[in-house]
């Protein structure tokens, strides 16, 4: 598929519970599709300092300071509702 690893920053309030679940779900789903990604977890407040060099930000809470990096704000990976569509969106952004 694509050359080189894409980078996704996954943010939530505390970077301990929610983003862990989100990061694992994304990684599994993308691996199934043969897409290799590097996922970094952080707190919402850390996004501005960590967004550099990322291809995409996926967050469960409001974030700012993301510059030109696209942001997907979703809780689908926690509720299970709309997860497939969000994965498709992520795949599109990473192309």
């Amino acid at each position: 598929m694509m050359k080189g690893k894409k980078r996704i920053l996954v943010a939530c309030g505390t970077a301990i519970a929610t983003s862990t679940v989100v990061a694992r779900k994304i990684e599994e789903e993308l691996t199934k599709r043969g897409i290799d990604v590097v996922i970094t977890q952080c707190k919402a407040a850390e996004v501005p300092s960590k967004v550099d060099g990322q291809d995409l930000v996926v967050t469960t809470t409001f974030v700012s300071g993301t510059g030109n990096v696209p942001v997907i704000h979703t809780v689908s990976f926690l509720t299970g509702i709309g997860m497939e569509q969000d994965i498709e969106k992520i795949v599109e952004y990473l192309k």
Binding site: T14, A15, I16, A17, T18, L78, T79, G80, I81
Partner: peptide, 15 residues
């Protein structure tokens, strides 16, 4: 979390 049926909250904080 806006689950389809009964709603559940998952409060937590850092370690």
């Amino acid at each position: 979390l806006p689950m389809p049926g009964h709603k559940i909250a998952i409060p937590h904080t850092d370690a």
